[in-house]
Design a protein around this nucleic acid. Structure first.
Length: 376
DNA sequence: GAGTCGTGGCA
DNA sequence: TTGCCAAGACT
């Protein structure tokens, strides 16, 4: 007796009809056979260790494979097991993520790993309900870990999967809308191989990365071309539908590379929530356009009131532009020598110790300007 | 649902 | 140069 779980269906009648006439098993075979032959040799594919699969999936969120590879390798060397990551120093973990972006990912990962150690005996849970409760594990990552590490037929719908399947079945929904993902989860649940869900899910993503690319897909090399309704109609370049995101908002900032006469640097730890949480930075603030004061004067005032720092400021030493997903920082850089002891909101660090602290890329650029000035 | 949260690569 | 991303999750 088959268990009938009543759940909402996110497919319209047209899509359900397409699936009824779709050659599911032939599609699975063509896709998986291609994957087994052509898949890339990636470091997280050496085994099915659920921990390594987990780390790789978190790193790969919104991040390119080529970028992730060196981070994954060194991260696993430093923290080879769930136990190692759970017991690791937070600063060291953040340092291992430095430059990779979306830093809340690694904070959530370590938090979740501690939860697995304490509540699940160090074994990544293999049930959808339990794994979903872990911090940072959303619908995609849940399906990816369950299918890749445990070979459980759960959909793992990412941008690749939505692009590929929107073309295969000519689905004209806007993939930028959150609710559209549910449609593709329903579709994937109908299509996924029960014999090899791991290869099936990875094959869909691999196809999206190598063949069914966002622009100029290589349809003539595609192993599932015969199943693709968009190719049949010649509309593969029109799919998927994706609405535009809005432009990032520019902000004018001023920053000081603060040092004393011995060359020690004074740095600040950002708050534990929000943008670049827990990372270190050189003192900086957002310029107020309405005052009559220059950036340099505003910066001196800020260093005094925020850090009780009496400083001698250089003229403008350079500028740094840094683009986030939703913001653009235009930072004017000044060099500042402190003449007193600033308050406890700043930490004094020698240049040699600086490499132990995790900085966002924007503040690495700021420090480079300071080093350039010292050479001149 | 819309906004927040990084970074580097590429057409 | 500008836009658009690339294996999303959280609030």
């Amino acid at each position: 007796m088959e268990i009938n779980i009543r759940r909402k269906i996110h497919m319209d009648n047209d899509l359900q009809n397409k699936l009824r006439s779709f050659s599911i098993h032939e599609f699975q075979d063509d896709l998986i056979n291609w994957y087994l032959t052509e898949k890339r040799d990636l470091p997280w594919r050496k085994d099915q260790d659920p921990y390594k699969v987990w780390v790789s999936e978190i790193m790969l969120q919104q991040t390119r494979v080529d970028t992730v590879i060196p981070y994954f390798t060194s991260f696993i060397e430093k923290f080879p097991t769930i136990e190692a990551l759970a017991d690791a120093n937070e600063e060291e973990v953040l340092k291992a993520w430095e430059g990779l972006g979306y830093y809340s990912r690694v904070r959530n990962l370590q938090s979740a790993v501690k939860e697995v150690k304490e509540s699940y005996g160090g074994v990544v849970p293999n049930s959808p309900h339990e794994i979903s409760k872990l911090k940072g594990v959303g619908p995609y990552t849940k399906g990816a870990i369950l299918s890749i590490a445990y070979n459980i037929p759960e959909p793992a719908v990412d941008g690749n999967v939505m692009r590929v399947l929107s073309r295969i079945l000519s689905i004209w929904e806007d993939i930028a809308k959150p609710k559209t993902r549910k449609t593709f989860e329903d579709v994937t649940y109908e299509l996924i191989s029960r014999d090899d869900p791991s290869s099936f899910n990875q094959a869909l993503m691999e196809l999206g990365a190598l063949i069914c690319t966002p622009t100029s897909p290589s349809c003539l090399l595609c192993p599932v071309r015969e199943h693709c309704t968009a190719f049949e109609e010649g509309v593969q370049a029109e799919l998927p539908i994706k609405s535009k995101k809005k432009k990032p908002k520019p902000l004018q900032m001023a920053a000081a590379v603060l040092h004393d006469s011995d060359g020690n640097l004074y740095i600040h730890k950002r708050p534990s929530t929000g943008l670049l949480a827990n990372l270190w930075e050189h003192p900086n603030f957002e310029i107020v356009a309405t005052t009559g004061k220059t950036y340099r004067e505003q910066l001196a005032d800020y260093l005094q009131t925020e850090y009780e720092a009496k400083v001698v400021l250089s003229e403008l030493a350079g500028t740094v532009e840094h683009i986030f997903s939703h913001l653009i920082w235009n930072i004017s850089i000044f060099i500042a020598e402190v003449k007193n002891s600033p308050n406890e909101n700043l930490v004094a660090v020698s240049p040699e110790e600086l490499s132990k602290f995790a900085f966002p890329v924007s503040h690495q650029k700021i420090y480079q300007i300071y080093k350039g000035q010292n050479l001149a």
